[in-house]
Write a protein that binds this DNA or RNA. Structure first.
Lengths: 139, 139
DNA sequence: TAAAATTAAATTGTACACAACTTAATTTTA
DNA sequence: TAAAATTAAGTTGTGTACAATTTAATTTTA
């Protein structure tokens, strides 16, 4: 028996499973805002930066236009963002918040704390997990 | 500014991004076997257990029948597995390896080592990451 | 400066993921 | 034991993900 091929011994599987579980934890909170987790990530970037190009969002979230374009169209349909081609460079599409999208920030501000509570790790362990994940990401 | 809503300060985002990055690292190796990462996980369970029900696969991989049924049909089409309703309980579908599916294990046995090398963490850090992820999963 | 190369989004096609529901079989229980 | 409840898979519909390609605009360079 090849020990390395046992599910039990995989490092990647728990990360894959955890990623999906985390999104499940977010769901009830995000359901109230009527957005998905990837949509929440986009909103979070825009709450910080207000206007971003599709490219900039993709670089920050590590998602390509094939994922972002339809996702952003859905956020636009919900009235949370505006998509507008740049005058300066017609290839670029600028994404910005509507007043309604900006207002959602107040409704979202309790989510991070609620999530921390449901995760079941100490702050220290959380920091460790974050650092290890980021170290691998930055390879 | 709500610090807790900064992308920079999220614990969940790096895990979500890392999960997708890991699947990217696997891709070239799995392309040679012509399977996807979730399909590889199913194969890994079957290499260990040979026959499993859809339910058992779902419990181990934390995936539901809505995900597994079509995935298993694709593995069957590739000739790697057989889906067969149980005689004892007609609700149950048993998944087992074909000779070709069993043979794939030899071709896969170098993957875990290759992955370890591309991850950029020490064995110690890897163990830590695995343990933290599992601790959160088992909440 | 006109052709070639590059870039930014969008599009197309395949494969998850999962909620909600359906169907059929088996267990439970009244 | 017949009706009710439960269980196992499958189905339907929506929303990611991402490879590969396309389109249109901008830069580079010959």
């Amino acid at each position: 028996m090849q020990e390395a091929l046992l599910l039990e011994n995989q490092v990647c599987f728990p990360i894959y499973a955890l990623s999906r579980q985390i999104i499940q934890y977010y769901r009830p909170m995000l359901d109230e805002l009527d957005i998905t987790y990837p949509q929440y990530l986009v909103m979070m970037v825009l709450w910080e930066h207000d206007t971003q190009t599709v490219n900039q969002l993709g670089a920050l979230l590590k998602l390509d236009s094939g994922t972002l374009t339809p996702l952003l169209k859905r956020l636009e349909l919900k009235g949370l963002i505006i998509r507008k081609r740049s005058k300066a460079d017609e290839r670029v599409v600028n994404i910005s918040l509507t007043p309604s999208g900006r207002a959602m920030k107040e409704m979202a501000c309790s989510i991070p704390h609620q999530m921390l509570e449901s995760m079941g790790l100490s702050l220290e362990e959380m920091q460790q997990l974050k650092q290890l994940a980021e170290k691998m990401l930055n390879r």
